[in-house]
């Protein structure tokens, strides 16, 4: 019984680091590629064009 619980929780938690990294990664890409705040847009302008994000 104890062994079962161990395995189940280990398998469930095994996903957490990957999910965390995916959310963090998509957050970073949204910030550099999509957020339209003027300062961010100006700083990332050339990158957005060169990397194929919708810019203006």
């Amino acid at each position: 019984m104890t062994t079962k619980t161990l395995n189940a929780s280990a398998a469930g938690l095994g996903f957490l680091p990957a999910v965390f990294a995916i959310v963090l990664g998509l957050g970073v890409v949204t910030l550099t590629g999509h957020v339209q705040a003027a300062a961010l847009h100006d700083a990332a302008h050339d990158v957005r064009h060169a990397t194929g994000f919708p810019c203006h």
Binding site: G25, V28, V29, T32, A43, A44, V47, A50, T51
Partner: peptide, 19 residues
Amino acid sequence: LSIVFTMLTYTGYTLVMVA
């Protein structure tokens, strides 16, 4: 700024890819 933001963008991509 372009260099910094390109590195940030690609780090975002690699976070998703490595996960």
